[in-house]
Design a protein around this nucleic acid. Sequence first.
DNA 1: GTCTATATCCGGATAGAC
DNA 2: GTCTATCCGGATATAGAC
Lengths: 195, 195
Amino acid sequence: MARKAGSHADITGPAIRAAALRLFARSGYAAVSMRQIAAEVGVGAGALYLYTPDKQTLLFDLMQEHMTALLAAWEAVDKGSTPQDHLQAFVAFHIDFHIDRPDAVFLAYMELRNLSPGNFAAIEALRRRYENQLQSILENGSGTGAFKIDDARITTMALIAMLAGIHVWYRDGGRLSRDRIQTIYRELVRRTVSP
Amino acid sequence: MARKAGSHADITGPAIRAAALRLFARSGYAAVSMRQIAAEVGVGAGALYLYTPDKQTLLFDLMQEHMTALLAAWEAVDKGSTPQDHLQAFVAFHIDFHIDRPDAVFLAYMELRNLSPGNFAAIEALRRRYENQLQSILENGSGTGAFKIDDARITTMALIAMLAGIHVWYRDGGRLSRDRIQTIYRELVRRTVSP
DNA sequence: GTCTATATCCGGATAGAC
DNA sequence: GTCTATCCGGATATAGAC
C-alpha cells in the first residue's frame, strides 16, 4: 500500500498506547499531560488526536483492552477437573497474568475514578465478570464439600484482594522467584477454603 | 483573647482539612483544585494559604495524621496473651479502625504517588511500621508453634492486602453487619496461619 | 481572617501549513 | 501523518484592600 513519506501510523499508534500506559501507571491519569505522552513518543501533541478522540478515551481503551485480554486468557486456561484443581489453576493464572503486566494492573485498579460514568460502568462489568469466575469456583467447591466457605462473595473479594496485593511489593529479580510466590500463594488460598 | 470580627481560624482550619480529605478521596488529589476545596469550605481560594503553605503539604498532613493515628490507636489496644489472641486483636482492630475512616484509608492507599519524594518516604516509613506490627505477631506465633507460616513477610503482605480489600466493597448499611464481617475475616485469617 | 484581583503558567483540543 | 501555532479555560500561588 502506498504511503506518504513521514508516515508511521503502524508504529505511532502502539507507541502512543505504550507511552500512555507507562506514564498513567507511574504518575496517574490526571497528573499526565497529552504533551508528556507526545514527547515520550517523539511526536507533537496534536498528532495524538489522530489516534484517539480525547484523553479519556485513551484511558478507557487501555483499561478495556486489559480486562478483555484477562478474561480471554482465563477462558483459554486448562482448568482441571476437581474444584481444588480449578481453584489452583485460577491462582496460578492470576499471578502469572498480573505479574507480567504491572502497569496495566495498576491502571485497572487505580484509575477507575477517572473514568466517565459510562466508561466506568463498562469496566466494572468486565471486572465483575472476572470476579464471578472465582466466585463460581468457590460456590461449586462449597456445594460438593471440597471447600468450606462462610460467604462465597466475601471470600471471593478477600482472595482477589490478597492476590492483587502482590503488585504492591513484587519486583522483578526480587527476593522470591515467581515459582516460589506461586507456591506460597497457592498454599495460602488452599488453607482459606479447605474444610 | 481578642479576635477580629470575621475571624474563624478555629473552625476554618479543620473545615479545610475535612473538605480536602473528602474531595481528594472522591476525585483524586490531582483532579481537585484549591478553588474547589475553598468553595466547599465557603471561603475564597486565597484564604487556604493561611492554613497550609501549599497543596502538597495539605495532602501530606492528611496522610501523616492518618498513619500516626493508626499507630497510636494500635498501641492502645489490649492485645491478649497468646499469639492467637494477638492476631485476632489485630484483625478486629484493623477492620474497626479502617471501616470508620473510609476517606483517609482511600487517600493513604491511593495518593502515595502524588507525594513529593521526601513526603513519600515519611509516609512509607509509617506504613512499614504498621506492617511490622503484624509481621512480629506472625513471627512470634511461628516461633512458638502457634502458627504455621511459609514466609512471614509475604503472609503479612497477603493478610494486609486481604483486609485492605474490604474498603473496595464495604458500604454502611450493606448486606453484612460489621460484626459479621469481623467474624468472617477473623476466620479467614485464622485459617491462613493455623498449623 | 478573608476577599478580590491578578501574575504566571500549563492543561486539552483544534486549525492550517507542509 | 506530523508540526507549529493558537484558542481558551483553569491551575497554583501571591498582593493588597478591607
